[in-house]
Amino acid sequence: MTDPSESGHGPPDASLSAIISERHQLINLTYRLLGSLTEAEDVVQETYTRWYAMTPEQREAVESPGGWLTTVASRICLDLLRSARARRERYVGEWVPEPLPAATEWISGRWSGGTTSDPADRVTLDESINMAFLVVLESMTPAERVAFVLHDVFRYSFAEVADIVGRTPAACRQLASSARRRIRGSRSAAAPAARSADLVRAFKEAWEAKDIEALIGLLAPDATATGDGGGLVRAVIRPVEGAEQIARFFAGRMEAVPDLTLVESTVNGQPGLVAQVDGVPVSVLAFDVAEDRIKQIWSVLNPEKLRAWREA
């Protein structure tokens, strides 16, 4: 991302540091709204471009620069979400949100695995960033998603949300309520983090051993595995359903790619796996664990969604 101080609009104004400090909030917000860090970065770039396209006098007249930036970024996201419906219909296979590694930051258009860079670019990993949560957000209407994320995750008032979404506060309250029902309807009792890690590790070992019976024992009977290749690499077009079918599918993948290696990792703040060939990540797997079994597996193979993992 281009530093606003280098944008060619003359010397930085007195509020530059305050404006730059909003970047952390904007990246966190836009990733949750879009499920794509690449698109989130583009939105933040466009938001700053619009800010610096104003005259110094116009910027000075803005009472709350942070509020202005949030409003503009959210409205851009709302437009993107509306157009994304059509784009997702043309997407080859299933669309899964872009997975995030742990302790990785998106800085000036590139990834860094260190922790010494500008913390303003770091995406905070919390419950609202795990893959299961993001997948449910994908099922919401654009207005529901924006209202819910702004109010329930970022604690904006419904009056503020209404100004962004272009609806009344009462309508935004209804949108957020509808979104909460979707969240509640999709949730099962979450397993403790340590137990999730144990199950993912056991899945890795059973997968490496091509032990179908062991894999079946780790999966919920009605488990689902979803792959996202984006039409760029080979991946199943539709989700694989059922413990036995999933177990046989993964065992078969190990047979088909004998040089595949599996590495335990943190994916969107949760225990996950990275599949590598010759040390290069070719797939990132996120898991949803409930009632002591693996309920959902999301495998992202689309190379455009793996930049964070290949460049970290």
Rank of each mutant, 00 (worst) to 15 (best):
M1L: 00
S15W: 08
L16Q: 12
A18F: 11
I19T: 06
I19W: 14
L26R: 05
I27R: 10
I27L: 15
R32P: 04
A40G: 15
V44C: 12
E46R: 00
T49P: 03
T55V: 03
P56Y: 03
E57V: 01
E60D: 09
G66A: 11
L69P: 02
S74K: 06
L78F: 01
L80F: 04
S83Q: 12
R87I: 14
E94C: 14
L100P: 14
S108V: 09
G109R: 14
G109N: 13
S117E: 15
D118V: 14
D118L: 13
P119S: 11
A120Q: 13
L125P: 13
L125E: 14
D126C: 08
E127C: 03
S128K: 12
M131Y: 07
M131V: 02
M131G: 05
A132W: 03
A132G: 04
F133Y: 11
L134N: 04
V135K: 15
V135A: 06
V136Y: 05
P142G: 00
A147L: 07
F148E: 00
L150C: 15
D152G: 00
F158A: 04
V161Q: 01
I164H: 05
V165L: 06
V165M: 05
A171N: 00
A171E: 03
C172Y: 02
Q174I: 08
A176P: 08
A179W: 00
R184Q: 02
S188W: 01
A190S: 00
A190R: 09
P192E: 02
A194T: 13
A194M: 14
S196P: 06
E205A: 02
E205N: 14
E205T: 12
W207E: 13
W207I: 10
W207C: 03
E208R: 08
L219E: 06
A220Q: 01
P221E: 06
P221K: 05
P221C: 03
T226G: 04
G227P: 02
D228V: 09
G230P: 05
L232E: 10
R234A: 01
V236L: 11
I237V: 10
R238W: 12
G242F: 11
A243Q: 01
A243E: 06
R248I: 04
G252P: 06
R253M: 08
D259Q: 11
D259F: 08
D259R: 10
L262S: 13
L262Q: 02
E264G: 14
T266N: 05
V274F: 10
P281C: 09
V282I: 15
S283E: 13
A286W: 08
D288E: 09
D288M: 04
A290I: 01
R293I: 07
L301G: 12
L301E: 07
P303W: 12
A308H: 00
